[in-house]
């Protein structure tokens, strides 16, 4: 008797959950507010600017979604970004005389490898060294930041002038009107969503973050899953670095400063649980957009004193999280 009832239940469509829509609703509300506050908000250039800018945080945050949902945390992403950027520019400048514009491709490849290695370092410290991710990545955050400061003598590492022009389209260019960084972000998010929701690795990531003991007792190597998440994070940082360099053409000791906090905020606003186990890649992107739109609105509207901008941003973020909770 029970079986008939149950197969019926099994066939029922998955219930629509408002809570899952939270970040997108919040984004819609922020955009609506933008439209009402300033007419130039909706202008094509402004929208393109805002979306393009949010690409860095969004791409890095996709990686952070892996780390956080597997039960880790990475505070080093901002510094790592600066370090990877520095290495890439130095490589490109070194190779430019012999290779010309192809130096950009090789430099980008080197960046991806360095990013992955930085992530691997974080991962191994956390899993093999068994050090709390917060402390481990706080340590590497200092290390990467010091390395870029040292590499630049506290000044900046500019890219060779000969490479500026051929490299420029990677940030400023577009395909069919869509800015290139936006396309890159979409690709990263699609790959991220595919891995998280469709593959064994994604499942294991979620299991390791939800309850590491259950994962271990189910034959999942939690250490391997978490280390891989950190490596994915490192690669995402490198991808962000690739499209960051052509924007200003230099790495400085302030590059990527405090980005780690923006990244974590984007991930959490997006609905991923900070304690692990729940991953929302698309929500993460919405989170990154929300942060960037709010910052944009602060400048566009004349309502807020320049001294209070940070306070208003903080209040909006907390309101978004509270709304999220109440929808649940």
């Amino acid at each position: 008797m029970t079986t008939s009832v149950l197969t019926e239940a099994a066939a029922a469509p998955r219930r629509f959950r408002w809570a899952d829509m939270g970040p997108f609703l919040a984004l819609a509300i922020v955009i609506l507010a933008g439209v009402m506050l300033n007419s130039s908000f909706l202008s094509g250039t402004n929208i393109a600017n805002v979306v393009t800018r949010s690409a860095f945080i969004a791409i890095i945050a996709v990686g952070a979604t892996f780390v956080i949902s597997s039960g880790g945390l990475d505070l080093s992403v901002g510094s790592m970004m600066a370090f990877v950027t520095g290495i890439m520019i130095l490589t490109m400048n070194r190779l430019e005389p012999s290779m010309g514009a192809n130096a950009i491709l090789v430099g980008a490849g080197v960046g991806l490898v360095v990013g992955a290695l930085c992530g691997l370092l974080n991962g191994l410290i956390v899993t093999v060294g068994k050090i709390e991710p917060f402390i481990a990545t706080l340590g590497t955050m200092g290390i990467f930041r010091a390395l870029i400061t040292w590499m630049s003598d506290g000044g900046s590492i500019p890219i060779d002038r000969a490479l500026r022009e051929p490299y420029r389209p990677v940030y400023f260019g577009n395909v069919l009107g869509i800015p290139f960084p936006v396309i890159l972000t979409l690709i990263v998010v699609l790959i991220g969503a595919f891995i998280l929701y469709r593959t064994k690795y994604g499942r294991r990531c979620m299991a390791a973050g939800s309850n590491a003991e259950v994962a271990r007792f189910s034959g999942v190597s939690v250490a391997r899953v978490r280390t891989t998440a950190f490596v994915i994070q490192g690669i995402c940082v490198a991808v962000a670095a690739i499209c960051y360099i052509p924007r200003l053409g230099a790495a400085t000791p302030t590059t990527g400063q405090l980005w780690e906090l923006q990244v974590i905020t984007a991930v959490v606003i997006g609905g991923t649980a900070l304690r692990g186990g729940k991953a929302r890649v698309w929500g993460t992107v919405a989170g990154a957009l929300i942060l960037e739109v709010i910052a944009n609105l602060m400048v566009l509207s004349n309502m807020v004193s320049e001294y209070l901008v940070a306070a208003v941003q903080g209040v909006i973020i907390i309101l978004a999280m509270l709304a999220h909770r109440f929808i649940k």
């Binding site: 294991r204 979620m206 259950v214 007792f217 189910s218 034959g219």
Partner: peptide, 21 residues
């Protein structure tokens, strides 16, 4: 509860966690 099931996850991922192949 502590080592057997992912209490915050639906039934399907729990069922297949150990035998995803």
């Amino acid at each position: 509860k502590g080592k057997g099931l992912l209490l915050d996850e639906p039934l399907a991922p729990n069922l297949t966690l150990q035998a995803m192949d």
